[in-house]
Write a protein that binds this DNA or RNA. Sequence first.
DNA 1: CCTGAATATGCCCTTGCGGTTATATAGCTG
DNA 2: CAGCTATATAACCGCAAGGGCATATTCAGG
Lengths: 118, 118
Amino acid sequence: MPLRLYSWLANVDGMSTEPFGVLADPARRRILDLLRERPRLAGELTAAVGLSQPGTSKHLRVLREAGLVTVRPEAQRRWYELRPEPLAEIDAWLTPYRWMWAGRFDALERHLDAMEDE
Amino acid sequence: MPLRLYSWLANVDGMSTEPFGVLADPARRRILDLLRERPRLAGELTAAVGLSQPGTSKHLRVLREAGLVTVRPEAQRRWYELRPEPLAEIDAWLTPYRWMWAGRFDALERHLDAMEDE
DNA sequence: CCTGAATATGCCCTTGCGGTTATATAGCTG
DNA sequence: CAGCTATATAACCGCAAGGGCATATTCAGG
């Protein structure tokens, strides 16, 4: 039985893991930031994040399954490319909050001011 | 020794927990969404998220320590109020990505199109 | 005071995550 | 084919996160 490894294309439809959880890890944010500039090899990313090769590979898997990166094989190398679409979900969640912190009279300030009055 | 409980004001300077991790939990996002409309009592929030009272209370603690909510005691009640400022950090991280998913020729599409050509 | 209401903490348990090392797979290259 | 390179998986581990229940604290009201 041929035991298909390298089954990335399995969840192309993806959206499995939700993007908020994926971004919770700083290493994964780091990887995305690096890919923002240009596609990179898995090896480059491993060196950049400062984790072991398998450790980095697992983060890459999470990013793939969340649809945040795509992979292009080239011989034994793997070119990872950014796919920012899922970030739109976070952006959408953030939207109704965005006007709020623009120079408003902060709730915490109000709170502390109120305390001084006592 | 007076063993000060209710030590919320301890980390007013806060920023301890980072906002990405805090938002990773759907219950906490739910709470923030509810507080977007108006301040609410802890009890209201408990009912809304559908967790046990202590469970909700723990999420509220995390939100407090991240500076995402403030509390105003009123007798035994606690009014929780949204404090969106820490979300600015997420917004800032997202900013350099935001232009990318606006009607671009998606990397995944490119990838699949390329596969068809074979 | 005593009781009940509202909420926070302590404790326990289970699960999942992130990390590491060892191993498997795939594809060059001699 | 043998060996080397690049990368993914497997197996394992420690720890923190999230959930529940029991308990403590604070306060209002009879």
